[in-house]
Write a protein that binds this DNA or RNA. Sequence first.
DNA 1: CATGAATGAGATTTCATTCAT
DNA 2: TATGAATGAAATCTCATTCAT
Lengths: 191, 191, 191, 191
Amino acid sequence: MVTKTVGKNKQKAILTGTLALISERGFHDTPMSLIAQRSGVSTGIIYHYFENKDDLIHTLYQRIKQEFSAALLVGDPHELPWPDHLKLIWMNAYHYYITHPAETMFLEQYENSPYHLKWEEMPDENFTRLYALIEQDLAAGFMRPLPDPALYALTLGVASSLAKQQIEGTLKLSADQLAEIANAVCRAIAA
Amino acid sequence: MVTKTVGKNKQKAILTGTLALISERGFHDTPMSLIAQRSGVSTGIIYHYFENKDDLIHTLYQRIKQEFSAALLVGDPHELPWPDHLKLIWMNAYHYYITHPAETMFLEQYENSPYHLKWEEMPDENFTRLYALIEQDLAAGFMRPLPDPALYALTLGVASSLAKQQIEGTLKLSADQLAEIANAVCRAIAA
Amino acid sequence: MVTKTVGKNKQKAILTGTLALISERGFHDTPMSLIAQRSGVSTGIIYHYFENKDDLIHTLYQRIKQEFSAALLVGDPHELPWPDHLKLIWMNAYHYYITHPAETMFLEQYENSPYHLKWEEMPDENFTRLYALIEQDLAAGFMRPLPDPALYALTLGVASSLAKQQIEGTLKLSADQLAEIANAVCRAIAA
Amino acid sequence: MVTKTVGKNKQKAILTGTLALISERGFHDTPMSLIAQRSGVSTGIIYHYFENKDDLIHTLYQRIKQEFSAALLVGDPHELPWPDHLKLIWMNAYHYYITHPAETMFLEQYENSPYHLKWEEMPDENFTRLYALIEQDLAAGFMRPLPDPALYALTLGVASSLAKQQIEGTLKLSADQLAEIANAVCRAIAA
DNA sequence: CATGAATGAGATTTCATTCAT
DNA sequence: TATGAATGAAATCTCATTCAT
């Protein structure tokens, strides 16, 4: 039982090290040996926990994506009326991004590389619940009937774009400005 | 006279080959030897025109960024009143993206990699003119006083996000839907 | 226990292979791939033991220099009176040179290339002891008060020069001739 | 006639550039392109004046060797009695070395690389005259009957060794010290 | 489970030499 | 003569992956 935990810890350490390095240096320029070093493990052991480098990176992606989807549901948006649940979700996304800079940079990098086309997206329960909520809003006529990707781009896409700039230090938003942008996002898609 | 341009042609061929390969395969997985082969030149000559791989990629980025900024001004948006000039610019961006899939994928990849933080952005005359137009709209009270990056995310960011999905084949927009989205974008930032 | 030393053996093999090749072919014309082949190792492992080619060559130089300095003290020259200790040291140097032709050619090549100006000389205990002995001889008035480099040139420099020619096959010295030259060297610097 | 001079000038420029670069950077690390640049000529033209890189380097060596041998005879040593002519030759050598640092470094490098074994030494009239003078001294019993290479090592070898150290800045000799060393050299080989 | 030396294919870059102009 | 773009073989170095211990 002790060793089981050690094993999990080691796997976690590898994922953490990989995240740190890739967010700093990019996919290229992040060799396995450096990951091992940063994670405090040997090169060989990585291949015990992951099939190969691609598998390691993809696993990391899935973990982060899952963590992100869970973060979107913080505060139980399903309990709130339109448009409050939309604003909460948007704020949750934004908050996750700026409090998880490494994860954010990694996600952006991953999703914008031809890398992620090689794998199919895993189904995720939290996203399923979110899509259901959106369907309700559409059915109730609160939201304009735009294609899903358009709704995404006009909402969470904006959040990620802004967060990225804050992380890079090229933007600083006050609470008021943030609320104002959240309103703008609502205006964009509200019926 | 024809032969005088051979040199430039070769440099252009290299940039074109690089663009094609990187948009298909990513930064990693695009070796110089493959670039040479695809461009129909020898490996060595690449280093005559570019200092190294980084320089090649960055130069390519600058060229595309320039081409893009020029595309935004097609149809003389400065001559149109608010909000028509905004819509024109937005449509120009969108049009550039979907008619230049390789360039789009390259731009996204480049701007989302730690790569681009190593270089400072070049000043660009077209962007300067665009910013001036935005300042006017802000001063005239047409647009909400949001920070530049927020305005960008709510407008061109949306266009790029949508275009990317169309290129990847996960989205198809009708002219009506597109116009509807352009309206949404306007609503978002209009005062 | 045998296998524990495998690592060191491999490093030694690389140094030995490098020495052989460089003494035969020179710095240029000695590619890493050839070193690997001659040493019976893979190219990659060389970079496990040495940072780069420069580091490999410089490390080899240091090892040889150390071995040489140890060879100078064979027979305990400190126990002999003037000028016998000088003659012993001189003979030791000469003997080392002609019995280590590869090392000799390497040393000469290294010390006569702009290469060695990039590194600072390591302090060496044996040389320190030799300098102390020379100081004594100077203080005792046995030797003429010439600058150290001049003393070196008039003694060991002569040994190396002669050895080099013997190695190249352009000179053959009898024991008598050698003794005669050792005397000449003594005459040159004796007070 | 004008162009003939230009040609010679260009060849001279190439030799001068090569000398400067090799004395600074070594045989390796001195590419043809850099030689062209430093010499103010195009890469291609070098191959008009020299067959290849080896030929260029060997030609340079011969020129310098010739210049050096001429320098040894300055002041007409043949007119002076023993041991004055020996001292004059020795001083001539020393003087040439310290006033021609690039040439000195080049010579040393060349003669200590496996390079020079590929070519046979050219006969040189000045050296022939010098050898004749030495024969006379030997026959007259002024000099000890040591092999030629030994005589060389004990005389000019010492001069070159000292000069090299002065060039590298690790030694500074006063006129007195120099005269003292010249005396030491004479003592070494005088009967 | 764990290590890290070892491999070797392949990546980037260099450079002597050629040749069209 | 003169240029310098062009070639491509070869050099240096990297790195994902394996495996003996």
